[in-house]
Design a protein around this nucleic acid. Structure first.
Lengths: 365, 365
DNA sequence: CGCCCCTCGGCAAGCCCTTTCCCGAACACG
DNA sequence: CGTGTTCGGGAAAGGGCTTGCCGAGGGGCG
C-alpha cells in the first residue's frame, strides 16, 4: 500500500520546470495504465481482464484485479464508449417528471433499462417543442443507444417535420428510437387508442342516462386532446346524442387548465349532467374547482377523465376514467427501441384503452 | 493558393475515386473529419469553429458551418468529454420515480440542471442498498460532474460505511456530491428537520385535544422514520402526554405499508383518537384502509402525515401533514453540487419543516 | 519426437475529439 | 522597407480505452 501516489505517470508538467504554480495534480481518477503498471502487466492485459473481453491467465488476472481494487479503479465509461463505438445509455425525453402521467411512463421505461444494466438520460421539455428538438440533438450527440420520446403530437407542421427530420438523422447515425403517443415519425411507436377509448367512454356515459355533456379539452393543436374529443363525439353520435349541443372548452392540458375551465363552465350557466375532461390531470383540477364552488360530484355533475393516473386511487369520489397501462407503455417503448435490430422496419404498437366506471359518474334516474 | 484537396483523410472505404460531393452514405454518425474535408479545411479549424474555442476567419468559418449543417454533423459528446476531461452530465439517484416524494425532488434537481444546460443520468434503486452502491459506481464511471443521491439513511453500519467510502472515492476522482436526507457522509447534504417537524406536529395535535396516538412508522432501520418518531415522542412528552401509551407499528415505507398497518390497527381494537403516519405515502395507504373499513376520518380518527407531497391536494379530507419544500430540496442539492468549488468543505443545509393543519385532524371537544 | 494448434501477453493502431505548438501571412508601426 | 505583432491555419500529440495482430510458449496428436 501507500504506493498509490508514486506512479510515474508524468504529465506535461515536466516542461515548465520549477516555474509551475501547478502542483503535481494527479488528483483525478485512476487510470487503467496505472493499474497495469501496478500489476506489472501491459495495458492491453489489464483492459482484457477488467472488461473480460478475452481470457487472461490466472497469475496476471489476479494481479490486475488486486491492483484495480487497491487503487479503486473505475473505468472511464466515456472513453469505453468512444473506443467501443457503442454506448450503454438510453435517452428518455418527457414533458415533466412531476406529472404522474409521465412519471408512470418513465417508471416503465426505467424498469426495462435497469434490467439490461443500462443507464438513462432523462430530459424534460416542459412542453416546449423547441426544447424537445434540442434534446433529440443532445441525445444524439451523446450517442445514446436508444431514444424514447414521450411527447404529444401537435398540428404544428413545421415542428413535426423538424422532429421527423431529427429522428431520421438519429436513426441514420445508427440509433433506435421509439415514440410514445405519436406515429408517422418513421420510428417505432406506442400509441394509445385515444379515439376508440373516448368513444367507449361516451357510450358508457350515455348508457348511464347522460345526454348533456361538456368537454374540457386541451389546446386545439394537441392531437391527443383532439383524438379524444373526436372519439367522444363519435361515441355520442352513435348513441343518438346531438353533438351540436356539446359544450367544448379548450384550455391548458394541466391541472390549472382543468380548474379554470371548470370554473368557466360553472360561470357560464346551467351545468350539463356530465363533464369529460380529456385527461385526468385536468379532471383533478376540475374536481377541485367544482368542490370549491360547492358543486357536488356526482350528485350535481358527473365527471370523467382519461389516462387513469396513479394518484386517482386516493381521490374521492373515485374518478371514472379510461385506463391506459402507462408503465407498460413505457416498457413497451423501451423494448421496441432496445430489442429491435436496427434497420428493421418500424413497428407501431396500439395500446388498448379501457373504460373504468367509478363513483364520479352517476346513473341518471 | 493550394486546392487543399490533398487531405488524405480517407475513410475505410475509399473506392469512389476522384472528386465529387460525398455520396457514399456510410452508416454511422458523421465525423468531424468529414465536415472538415467537406469544407476544405483542417480538422483543427473545424473543431475550433464548432466549439468556438478560438476565433476563425470568416471565409473558413462560414464554410465549416455550412458543411456541418449540410452533413448534419453532431459532435460526439462522449469523445468531447474524453478529450476535454470534463463531462456535462449530472447523476441523480433516487428510490423510485413513481413515488411523488422522489419525483418532486427530481423535478427540483432537473430544473437546476436544465438551467445550466447539462443532462441528467437518472437511476432508481427501488430501495435496494446494493443497487445504490452500484449506481454510485456507475455514475463515477461515467465521470458525472455532480452526483445527487436521494436515499434514506439507515442504521446499517456496513452499508453506510461502504457508501461513504464510495462517495469519498468519487470525490477523490474530482466529483462533487450532494446527498439529500443524509449527512455524515462527507458530502454536501440537504437534510429536512424531521425531528423538530414531528415535534411541532405532535404539539399541534395535542393542542387539538388529542391524547391517545398511534404512529405508523417505517422500517426500524430507517433513520428518517426513526427521527420523525423520536421527534413525535418528544413533542408528546413536552405536552404532557405519556408516551408509554403510544402505539407504534412498524411496516414498509410505502402505500401498502400504510394500508396494512392501518388495517392492523383497526383489528387490534379501540382506535386512538389520532394516527400519525411518518410519511404521506403511508398516510394515503392508511386513509384508504380506514375508508374501506368504514372508519371515518376525521370523525372516528384523525390522521396526519409528513412530507406534504403533491397528490395530497386532491385528497378528501385534505390531509394534515408536515410540509417539506421538496422541489426546493432537490434544487438546493443540485446547487450545492454544481456551484461549489471542489475541495471546499462540504456544507449541510437544514430544510425547514412546517406543520400544515388540514381537515383530516379534528379538534376534540 | 516433431508438428500444429491453441492459449495468452504485448505492441501499436485505432476510436473521435481537443488542444498545443509552430509557422507563414497579414497588418501596424517606426 | 524592415521589424514586431497579431492572427489564423495545419500538423501532431494527446485523452483513456479497445482490439487486431504477432509471436512465444505449451499441450495434444500422429
Amino acid at each position: 500500500m501507500t504506493t498509490a501516489r508514486e506512479s510515474p505517470t508524468g504529465r506535461r508538467a515536466e516542461q515548465d520546470g520549477a516555474a509551475g504554480p501547478i502542483a503535481v495534480r494527479r488528483s483525478g481518477p485512476v487510470l487503467l495504465a496505472e493499474v497495469a503498471a501496478h500489476a506489472g502487466v501491459s495495458l492491453a492485459t489489464a483492459s482484457r481482464v477488467l472488461s473480460g473481453s478475452r481470457s487472461v491467465g490466472e497469475p496476471h488476472r489476479g494481479r490486475v484485479l488486486a491492483a484495480a481494487q487497491e487503487l479503486r479503479y473505475t473505468p472511464n465509461a466515456q472513453a469505453q464508449a468512444v473506443a467501443r463505438g457503442a454506448s450503454n445509455v438510453v435517452g428518455l425525453v418527457i414533458h415533466d417528471v412531476l406529472d404522474p402521467y409521465f412519471s408512470s411512463i418513465a417508471g416503465g421505461v426505467m424498469r426495462q433499462v435497469e434490467e439490461r444494466e443500462l443507464v438513462v438520460f432523462l430530459a424534460s421539455t416542459h412542453s416546449d417543442v423547441d426544447r424537445e428538438l434540442e434534446f433529440v440533438q443532445t441525445m444524439r450527440s451523446h450517442r445514446v443507444r436508444a431514444l424514447i420520446i414521450c411527447g404529444s403530437r401537435t398540428t404544428d407542421r413545421v415542428h413535426n417535420e423538424r422532429l421527423a427530420h431529427e429522428l431520421e438523422g438519429y436513426a441514420a447515425a445508427g440509433g433506435q428510437a421509439a415514440v410514445i403517443s405519436q406515429d408517422r415519425l418513421g420510428t417505432h411507436a406506442v400509441v394509445p387508442q385515444n379515439r376508440s377509448g373516448a368513444r367507449a367512454l361516451a357510450r358508457e356515459l350515455c348508457r348511464l342516462g347522460h345526454r348533456r355533456f361538456a368537454v374540457l379539452a386541451g389546446p386545439r393543436g394537441l392531437l391527443t386532446s383532439r383524438d379524444r374529443l373526436i372519439g367522444f363525439r363519435e361515441g355520442l353520435t352513435a348513441e343518438g346524442v346531438d353533438v351540436a349541443d356539446l359544450q367544448v372548452l379548450h384550455g391548458e392540458f394541466t391541472r390549472e387548465g382543468g380548474e379554470s375551465l371548470a370554473a368557466e363552465l360553472i360561470a357560464a350557466g346551467p351545468l350539463p349532467t356530465c363533464v369529460f375532461a380529456v385527461n385526468d390531470v385536468m379532471a383533478l383540477g376540475a374536481l377541485a374547482a367544482f368542490r370549491s364552488a360547492g358543486v357536488r360530484v356526482p350528485e350535481d355533475v358527473s365527471l370523467a377523465g382519461f389516462d387513469d393516473i396513479a394518484p386517482l386511487r386516493d381521490v374521492v369520489p373515485s374518478l371514472t376514467s379510461v385506463h391506459l397501462p402507462l408503465e407498460e407503455m413505457g416498457a413497451r417503448a423501451a423494448q421496441l427501441a432496445l430489442d429491435t435490430e436496427p434497420q428493421t422496419t418500424s413497428q407501431a404498437v396500439k395500446v388498448r384503452a379501457e373504460v373504468v366506471l367509478r363513483d364520479s359518474t352517476r346513473r341518471l334516474p
